[in-house]
Amino acid sequence: MDGIRPSRLWPGDVVRGGAVGLRTRPLRAVLSALGIAIGIAAMVAVVGISSSSRADLDRTLDSLGTNLLTVSPGRTMSGAEAKLPLRAEDMVARIGPVASVSAIGEVADTNVYRTDRIPEAETGGLATYAVRTDLRATTGARLHAGTWLNAATARHPAVVLGATAAERLGVGRAAPEVRVLVGGEWFTVVGILRPAPLAPELDVAALVGWPAAQDRLGFDGHATTVYTRSADADVAAVRSVLGATANPAAPNEVEVSRPSDALAAKRAAGEAFTRLLLGVGAVALLVGGVGVANTMVISVLERRTEIGLRRALGATRGHVRTQFLAESLLLSALGGTAGALLGAAVTASYAASQGWPPVIPPWTLAGGLAATVTVGALAGLYPALHASRLPPTTALATP
């Protein structure tokens, strides 16, 4: 006579058996899954927000370009502040690959005020720059309101305010009746700029035409920053000769920079911070796994009679082990799915509030769900093994 083969558990039976413990103890299941959900949500949100921020930086770099180089005076051998030659712009423009050149010059001891009733000591940290009319095209600065300086307005008391300068002065629009006090003289606000990522010095400044600055504010004509644009492939070559070309007599007194490097550094710093926060999310996920393990251990202790009855009716150790392991996996999967959805929602909401494109890398969701399965398997392994090893008589004798 052939021996009786033990019954097999089909996948549907495994899922239904694993869901029994969750349905009978819903509050405990929800609280345990919440720990997993918090960990996964933290990981997805951190990566999503960081990716969205980097996407916004990449979009900014793509729109503004990475081929902007700046030349500014450094220090002399004695430590004094150097000056660029008056012909620095013209000399830089002679470099073959350079496509466009513009400049600004700081007008010393020229403060900006909203009215003439503000004490002179309260400058608000604002500067005044003489600017060329082609500055906006070269730097990629964009207008928020009004117009930019042209050949006509650059000779008259007209001013364009940087984004931060306008905010500090309480100027929200450009109009003929809107005026600010620049160096003791009233200038009409003809325009307001948006924040300029590649030229942040413009944000906190009042920008007046080069001729008007010389005629009305005593500007000496020396540029303090020269901006150049060239083809991407020629940036390195232009950068290597820019200092010597701008000031042939003292190239060591010239500083050459690439403003887009600051945004790239910001992106790198953001990636390092993301790795740190991912560690925090991993810790939260670990804590959630401990909660699942605790729930499963208590479940085994509370259901010893059920386990003994199942064993007495013919369930094998493998059946019992599979049931409790499936319950742990279901619990973790529910928490992981909820956490992934919550993290995606947080990312989308925060990105929308900042005006960023919402970006959630697919590997984040896949990795998060894989992490929940791993945590669930590890958390349920010991309780499942312990339940399967209970002798039926001992389990049934448990009060």
Rank of each mutant, 00 (worst) to 15 (best):
M91C: 00
F273S: 12
T393G: 03
L378S: 03
R173H: 13
L325P: 03
R54P: 01
L242A: 10
D58L: 08
L369R: 09
P197D: 11
D220T: 11
A272T: 14
L86Y: 00
V280T: 09
G21P: 02
E271T: 13
R303F: 03
R389K: 12
P259Q: 07
V238G: 07
D62C: 01
T295A: 12
G21M: 00
I118L: 08
G65M: 12
R239Y: 06
W210D: 06
Q214T: 12
I4H: 03
S102H: 01
T347R: 10
L390K: 14
R75I: 08
V180F: 01
L34P: 05
G376F: 07
D203G: 05
R239N: 09
R16W: 05
A33K: 07
R216L: 15
T164R: 12
G270W: 09
R258M: 08
S388F: 03
A42T: 14
L64E: 02
T123M: 01
A166R: 02
E201V: 14
L331Y: 06
A282G: 13
A151K: 11
L68T: 03
P251I: 11
D90A: 14
S353Y: 07
V320E: 05
L68M: 13
R16H: 08
V208R: 01
A397G: 13
R216T: 03
L390I: 12
A37W: 00
V297A: 11
G21K: 00
G339I: 05
P361R: 09
R75Q: 13
A370Y: 10
V254H: 08
P197K: 07
G218Q: 11
R155W: 02
D215E: 15
L342V: 15
L193Q: 06
L329M: 15
T228P: 10
L390N: 13
I192Y: 09
F324R: 01
D2A: 14
R25V: 03
S72M: 15
L365I: 15
V238Q: 04
V297Q: 11
R114K: 13
I298T: 15
A165C: 13
G218L: 11
P195E: 11
N111H: 08
R114F: 02
A141T: 15
P119V: 08
S32G: 02
V238D: 04
D220W: 09
P195C: 12
G21F: 12
A249M: 10
M296Y: 04
V71Y: 02
V287C: 09
G48V: 11
G35A: 04
E81V: 12
L381Y: 15
S257H: 12
L390E: 09
P11D: 09
W210N: 02
S52D: 10
W10F: 10
A29S: 15
L263P: 12
P362M: 07
L207C: 01
N67D: 13
L27K: 05
A174Y: 00
